[in-house]
């Protein structure tokens, strides 16, 4: 029963959706503060390469090495996002161009590729990787077993993170302030909220989560390092934030939906479905377009949930 196509695809949808969930949660928090960061793809690639580097360099037991790797990936990507925060928040540069610059700077054939080549990371398997954990011994439970109880530690962590993000956004004072900064920075400023600090912190949290998402590629999915290995996942994560109407719980749904599109390619090919591989590979990209069109028509057109100040620099003197 657990080998039927639907269950296999659902289980691997959760697996392939996890990096998208991390990255889109991060982007969601950044956008809630009013900072649109189009550099997710670049930050994910920095996370992928630095996490992989750490796992090859740091010795010790596997769990420690992996934990360090995730921390390094998060830190490196957060440092990368700091450039964006500085340019857009402090220097008031265009968020669109700065985000694109971040992807060009850090992405495939940019800094991530440079680090990978200088540290000679290509073509070697990871010393350790994230294996699926049999949670509560329930992995053989019918249907839900492989989907919910046989995933790796990062996937479980991402579920906790969705809960934390929900709590933070809707049940805490800083979360309320964050939403205020994204909706009306002038009001938040008048309330005594430090708009600049909120925007910096959440852009960097967004970077850190994108880095973890990137590390998921090099430490769980492949697990080796390849130049440009996220192949557009960062952009899909940005689209997911729109799809999720800037709400964490919907980002989870969207991430697994797109995880399913990615996993379809692999699953159907191993099941001897004869179609050109490019048809399957282009599915996530085409579906991103379809989904974006759907949410931009009808009731989605009112842009439910989009922070009102998204993409607008806040200048105290010019309100």
């Amino acid at each position: 029963m657990n080998n039927t196509l639907v269950v296999v695809i659902a289980a691997s949808a959760v697996f392939y959706g996890t990096p998208l969930l991390f990255a889109s949660l991060g982007e969601l928090l950044a956008e809630r503060s009013g900072v649109l960061n189009l550099g997710v793809e670049g930050m994910m690639l920095v996370g992928a390469v630095s996490g992989f580097w750490a796992v090859q360099t740091v010795g010790g037991p596997g769990w420690l090495s992996l934990l360090t790797a995730v921390a390094v990936a998060a830190l490196a990507a957060a440092a990368t996002s700091l450039i964006h925060a500085f340019l857009t928040v402090t220097l008031r540069a265009s968020q669109i161009v700065s985000g694109l610059a971040l992807t060009i700077f850090a992405g495939a054939s940019g800094l991530s590729s440079y680090i990978g080549h200088v540290a000679n990371l290509g073509g070697k398997p990871a010393h350790h990787e994230f294996d699926a954990i049999d949670l509560f011994g329930l992995k053989d439970a019918p249907v839900i077993g492989p989907i919910l109880f046989h995933q790796n530690a990062l996937t479980y962590a991402s579920w906790v993170l969705v809960g934390l993000a929900l709590l933070y956004l809707y049940r805490t004072r800083p979360g309320l302030h964050l939403r205020a900064v994204g909706e009306s920075p002038a009001t938040a400023d008048a309330m005594g909220v430090n708009v600049t600090a909120y925007r910096y912190i959440h852009t960097m949290v967004g970077g850190a989560l994108a880095g973890v998402g990137g590390a998921f590629f090099s430490l769980a999915i492949t697990p080796f390092w390849l130049d440009g290995m996220t192949s557009g996942a960062g952009w899909i994560a940005i689209a997911l934030v729109i799809f999720a109407f800037w709400r964490p719980e919907l980002a989870l749904v969207g991430a697994y939906l797109f995880g399913a599109f990615s996993s379809l390619a692999f699953t159907l090919q191993t099941r001897q479905v004869h179609l050109p591989p490019e048809v399957f590979s282009s599915l996530p990209y085409l579906m991103t377009i379809v989904v974006l069109v759907l949410v931009s028509t009808g009731w989605g057109r009112r842009r439910l949930g989009a922070p009102a100040a998204l993409g607008v620099p806040y200048i105290r003197e010019e309100r």
């Binding site: 161009v97 610059a101 971040l102 700077f105 054939s109 940019g110 590729s113 440079y114 080549h117 200088v118």
Partner: peptide, 15 residues
């Protein structure tokens, strides 16, 4: 001249 330097340089020019 490791690969990736050109992209890094382009990104820095943009910044």
């Amino acid at each position: 001249f490791p690969a990736g330097l050109v992209g890094t340089l382009q990104g820095l020019i943009l910044f």
